[in-house]
Simulated scan of single mutants.
Amino acid sequence: MSAPADVPATAYQPVLAAEGVHGSRCTRCRRGAAPATPRCPWCGATAEGETFAPSGTVWAATVVHIDVGARQPPYGLAYVDLDDGPRVLVLLRRPEALTGGTRVTLAATDDPAAWAVADREVTP
């Protein structure tokens, strides 16, 4: 199923700003969502806007080895559980399959097909 023709695909992407990832949190079950939604996707209650930290833990990751749209392989994708919020899908800055539990930080990108990129956190 594709998006309606008058709705840009970016309408379904989270937004990363200087202060963090813009999303929403349910007033009843307290689950977070990104992008923001007026209603909770899980219980249907009202959701309020919230900004989540731009860091988290990799839940799963992969390296893609086929062309998809304009993106040239190889490139990495990861589902990241934000520290205080939802799970989001992000492009990895380097094409590597990070293991679950790896700490990452999200950063802005000029890539029009990605809303953010994730970098492995450097531990001192």
Rank of each mutant, 00 (worst) to 15 (best):
M1Y: 08
A3Y: 15
P4S: 02
D6A: 11
D6K: 03
D6Y: 12
D6V: 07
D6C: 02
A9F: 10
T10D: 07
A11I: 06
A11K: 10
Y12N: 05
P14Q: 08
A18C: 01
E19Y: 01
G20F: 09
V21N: 02
H22F: 14
G23P: 13
S24T: 09
S24N: 06
R28I: 06
C29E: 10
C29I: 06
R31E: 00
G32T: 00
P35W: 07
A36R: 09
T37L: 13
T37R: 15
R39A: 09
C40R: 03
C40W: 12
W42C: 04
C43Y: 04
G44V: 10
A45H: 11
T46L: 03
A47E: 14
A47I: 05
A47R: 02
E48R: 14
E48K: 12
G49S: 11
E50K: 15
F52T: 01
F52S: 04
A53S: 13
P54H: 01
S55L: 06
G56H: 12
A61W: 07
H65W: 11
V68S: 02
V68N: 03
G69Q: 02
G69T: 04
R71W: 05
Q72T: 14
Q72V: 06
P73C: 09
P74D: 02
P74E: 02
Y75R: 09
Y75L: 05
Y75G: 03
L77S: 07
D81L: 06
D81T: 09
L82K: 04
D84Y: 02
G85V: 00
G85K: 00
G85M: 05
P86L: 04
P86K: 03
P86E: 05
P86S: 12
L89S: 00
L89T: 00
V90R: 09
V90N: 01
L91V: 02
L91N: 14
L91H: 15
L92G: 02
L92Q: 08
L92Y: 12
R93M: 01
P95L: 04
P95F: 04
P95E: 07
E96Q: 13
A97T: 12
A97M: 07
L98Y: 13
T102I: 11
T102W: 14
R103N: 01
V104Q: 14
T105C: 04
T105K: 12
L106N: 11
A107D: 13
A107Y: 12
T109V: 10
T109M: 12
D110G: 15
D111I: 06
P112F: 10
P112N: 05
P112G: 03
A114D: 03
W115D: 00
A116V: 03
A116N: 03
R120W: 03
